[in-house]
Amino acid sequence: MDKMMFLLSEGVKNLWRHKLTAFTAIFSIFLTLSVAGSLMIVGQNTNKIIEYLRGKYKIEVFFNENVSDKQIASVVEEFNKINGVRSTTLISKTDAGKIFKSQFGENILDIVGYNPLPASCVVNVVQYQIEKMNIMPIVERIKSYPEVDEVQYQGRLIYRIETYYQKFVKIMTVLLILILIISVFIISNTVRLTIIAKKELIQALQLIGATRSFVKAPFVIEGVFHGLIGAILASALLIVGLEIGSGITDSVIKLKIQYSPFILVGILSSLSVVISFLGSSRAISKFLK
């Protein structure tokens, strides 16, 4: 327990003892996390947009004239079981007539003497899916039912939206990973400067019989503190920026930026602890080799 307290206090004292390197490390982490946090917020909001768009994807299915309402109801039940289908809305011939009247103001029976409008069904697809949404298997499956006369969908548009979204997700992921890897190297090199400055301490510790983990611990603890301070500063900057940005987008395009301050702080803190732990461990381990 006393040993732990000593290592912890050494880690904290080192923050003060190595002011310049602490500032450099904290500033690097702050910049890295601000960029990473911004990317995450952009990603999260893009997700919301794609979910909204997917909510608008519709497959309209028209049934053959000679199919009974009972058969239609049973086929629609089958549609609900297709993988990727979120919900279905059945529009009977009578409903179609009502829709016609609401849209054109006249009764279809009065115009042509009978109801030529087919029974139909609107199939809505799932909104939450990370991978590219391909509605063609759903369309093909629906088309395979003999009761179905025609299927209409915005195939080309959906394909383009999904393709662009997937490219965006890939670029964002690569960018984020790249930033995190770079930050591990930045932190590692910053900690190396501290270590070079503290060469005497490390040698003294080794000479008096300190184990590798005892020598490493204060540097790793110091690194984790750098990470936490950097994360707090980056979170503060992002939250202030997002609040201002959200106010602007809300007044201009009636759209609020979606984010949770608690989740943001949580993710950035954990991320920074992990990267600063990896960075400082890497640096001190390389030195002790």
């Binding site: 006393d2 040993k3 005497e200 003294a204 510790l205 019989g209």
Partner: peptide
């Protein structure tokens, strides 16, 4: 090989911290 950033007490106590002695 004394450490300049700590006083005599802390320099000497370091060996005992390594051994895990109580404060």
């Amino acid at each position: 090989h004394l450490l300049d950033d700590r006083n005599l007490f802390d320099n000497i106590a370091l060996s005992l911290h390594v051994l895990g002695w109580a404060k």
